[in-house]
């Protein structure tokens, strides 16, 4: 049991960590871009992202499954029931959350601050970097929200990962399995581990957040 538990924790961290990293890269860039640029149909894109912030995980799971299924459009990649499929699903779940919150944050910066940065000679990339730094507290909160959304998620990873022992079994799916088997003690133990994990990651991010606030 012990090595298996370690295995599960490591896989959980690997899958959600990597998914979060990808979601941060896409989400924050997309959020800043949307906040600073106007283009036709922007409202539709923003509407899609806002819907994405509350996307039902099982629907995402189903979608990813259909795409990665052996007969599906991306079936040749042979990713179904691998950690990569789970990462895929989690990126789709976390990116709109991070993008939507980033956009809202950047839009709240007064227009004059943006003008001032441009008048000092900032190009678009420098402006984005400066504004991200300016709102780092809120952006870290967006990252925490994204992380919370994926590490606690069970429906999608179950569907696309398959909950295969030693390969795609993560904390949440293990908890579901053990509860169904009636092994409540183990399920509770796993839950405690999950909570501890969630707490320590968010505590770490909070430390970063509050440290930047004080300096």
């Amino acid at each position: 049991m012990y090595p298996e538990l370690i295995n599960i924790i490591l896989l959980t961290l690997k899958v959600s960590g990597l998914a979060l990293l990808i979601a941060i890269l896409i989400g924050i860039s997309l959020g800043i871009y949307l906040a600073l640029h106007d283009f036709p149909f922007k409202k539709i894109v923003v509407g899609v992202i806002n819907t994405g912030m509350g996307l039902p995980p099982v629907v995402v799971g189903l979608l990813v499954m259909l795409f990665l299924w052996r007969g599906g459009p991306l079936g040749f990649l042979d990713l179904i029931y691998t950690p990569w499929a789970m990462i895929c699903a989690q990126v789709i779940l976390a990116t709109p959350i991070i993008a939507g919150l980033t956009m809202a944050t950047i839009q709240q910066i007064p227009q004059k601050m943006k003008w001032q940065a441009l008048a000092l000679g900032a190009n678009n990339l420098q402006l984005a970097w400066l504004l991200a730094k300016e709102t780092r507290l809120s952006l870290l909160a967006a990252v925490m929200a994204g992380f919370g959304g994926i590490i606690s998620e069970v429906g999608a990873v179950m569907m696309v990962g398959g909950n295969i022992k030693g390969q795609t079994r993560v904390l949440t799916t293990a908890i579901v399995l053990e509860s169904q088997k009636g092994a409540f003690e183990l399920a509770i133990a796993l839950s405690v581990v999950l909570l501890l994990l969630l707490f320590s990651v968010n505590f770490g991010l909070t430390m970063i957040q509050q440290r930047t606030k004080k300096s």
């Binding site: 001032q116 400066l130 730094k133």
Partner: peptide, 12 residues
């Protein structure tokens, strides 16, 4: 060219 506004508009 550069510009100074009515508010200082300093960044954090």
């Amino acid at each position: 060219m550069t510009m100074v506004f009515q508010e200082p508009l300093l960044f954090d």
